[in-house]
Write a protein that binds this DNA or RNA. Structure first.
Lengths: 340, 340
DNA sequence: TTGAAAGCGGTACCAC
DNA sequence: GTGGTACCGCTTTCAA
């Protein structure tokens, strides 16, 4: 018969009921004490015709989709694409697929995406949230779907978090620069209210204050790469004489900074020492090599997906409501750009 | 009532039939000549309770999922993540979501992924295929789902393709080196049978032959970054004296090569000139800057998704079976690494 | 040990 | 113009 294969056609073909086939297929043969013979018969036939159950129908019935929604800031950033890769790999091994999207730090788009994901009945979420989605995410959390927040901390949100110790990392990096003898240390960051940026800034400010120095902070608007470079360039032209070292709060800001410094013929580290948050292949290859604060990408990914998988496996019965906040340590990689 | 909202509960609440609600919701009110008043009533209520139809149920019934499957080699490669970003953006604007995966050039995993995607009833595929999946993809194509192949050309596969002119690009780059006065030009590539690699190699070989020179080809096994560097390093140590220029067939091979050359204190371009296929931010920032063959990422992405969307919109009726092969041009970016 | 049948939430054919 | 209802394919309760 030319009919599409379904659990029904199998049952009909074998002269048994769909129930039985379903039980066998779902490994409930033992439990339901279905005869070995029958099980084998079903399995053999399924094998023969290479039957694949329709997961849509299954999802509709069970409410589970075996899909995890991954929402990052921008999949084309190496940091996020590396995380995506790791998460996908692990998810795949556990029978989950990933639907991903980039928010581009756009609140409206993010809300939209979450709606779409809910609509697709994804089983869980891993989200790198932009500003202003706390409420939406809280809604999400109060549905029974597990949510893991990545990279940023949302204090008002009842969800698991995986972040790095931004404050301490930058505090220590700043202290390192000070110990190296630098005094006029600038911090270049994004004008963002996201927790990770706030924390990095605070770490810098506190270290500066603890050493009785004067903070020099430059906030760059979220903008295209070329724009960023211009802002930084303008800043450097005004301040280059006085600044001895610069800390960048993200790697792409640092890249823009390096371009600007190259244009201005500023010598690193002779004129200015440089440190960047978030390591990048470029920093290892650049001349001079650039000191950086490396985030543990593997560990971040692993913790996030493990946390989510654990929640997914747990029956709602023993749902321990205590949300976790996992804080991972960064690695300070000293390179040539900070040698006095 | 505490019942979950469905098209049925709406119908019941309003005292009309599900059919009517369905028609209104699907914009078929006009077509079905449903009264303005009723339409408004339905719409208002839907608005009020913020009803979102269950797309799973809809997919089950219609066979459409509004999901596009994107299968790339490795999402953590900038080339692929940039493409993913562009494709996602455009897909999103057209109401499609993306499920993506990385094949890691693993044939078995890829087949598995395709199975999973079929199972999820994705509406269309964009695939960067590893070796050995031609048959599987042909199966896919003979289902009615549109498939677009990216980056590599599968001659036996009846699908749309979007590729770049690998052969000409490398031929011209090689010729450029020759015109610059380089004679002993090596080509470092992967030991891969994928069309794009074959074509790049052929382009090199033909140019060398056309100029009466001797080809020097080094094939590197697919391996971890560190391994690759070792292989290249060993090759360079044996040949450094005679080689005047090197062409790398991919950007990550070139990065490994740059590391190796740095270790060996080979001066670029004084000792050796360097060209890489596939541009990379690093090449623009490196000292010296590295000449490269840039792929038109935006154009590749745009063509791929447009092709797919076009096929998706087209009714099966006027299905023009003629598959397209879109060949895009690369840009040769001359930088410091090739100045004699 | 196995089977009948009621949904999951929509869509769309067919009837009135 | 509007409504009844079969059906997409699978899970699962209940009965036999």
């Amino acid at each position: 018969m030319g009919k599409r294969i379904s659990i029904n056609s199998i049952a009909k073909h074998l002269g048994i009921s769909t129930t039985t086939v379903s039980f066998v297929l779902n490994g409930k043969a033992q439990e339901k004490r279905i005869s070995e013979k029958l099980v084998k018969k079903v399995m053999d036939y399924v094998e023969e015709i290479d039957y694949k159950p329709n997961s849509l129908a299954r999802s509709l019935r069970t409410g589970k989709s075996n899909i995890i929604g991954l929402i990052v800031e921008d999949i084309s950033f190496p940091f996020f694409s590396s995380i995506a890769k790791e998460i996908e790999e692990k998810a795949y091994k556990n029978g989950y697929k990933i639907i991903y999207s980039s928010t581009e730090n756009n609140t409206a788009k993010t809300k939209d995406l979450i709606d779409m994901y809910q609509d697709k009945h994804v089983d869980g979420y891993i989200i790198v949230p932009p500003e202003g989605v706390e409420e939406k995410i809280n809604e999400l959390c109060s549905s029974e779907k597990p949510v893991v927040i990545l990279d940023r901390y949302l204090s008002d949100v009842q969800a698991d978090h995986v972040v790095v110790n931004n404050y301490e990392s930058v505090y220590n990096a700043t202290q390192y620069l000070i110990d190296q003898g630098f005094k006029n240390i600038a911090f270049i960051t994004l004008n963002s209210l996201q927790s990770q940026m706030i924390d990095r800034l605070s770490g810098y400010e506190q270290a500066i204050q603890d050493n009785g120095l004067i903070p020099i902070v430059k906030e760059i608007a979220q903008a295209e790469s070329i724009e960023r470079q211009k802002y930084i360039s303008a800043f450097l032209q005004r301040k280059a004489d006085s600044i001895e070292a610069i800390l960048f709060s993200t790697n792409y800001l640092c890249v823009s900074g390096l371009r600007a410094m190259k244009d201005l013929h500023l010598d690193i580290p002779k004129n200015i020492a440089v440190v960047s948050f978030d390591d990048y292949e470029l920093f290892e290859m650049y001349s001079p090599t650039i000191t950086s604060i490396a985030q543990p990408i593997e560990s971040i990914s692993e913790n996030a997906i493990n946390l989510l998988l654990a929640r997914l496996k747990k029956k709602e019965a023993d749902t321990d409501k205590i949300k976790q906040k996992i804080v991972l340590s960064t690695t300070f990689i000293v390179r040539e750009s900070t040698s006095q």
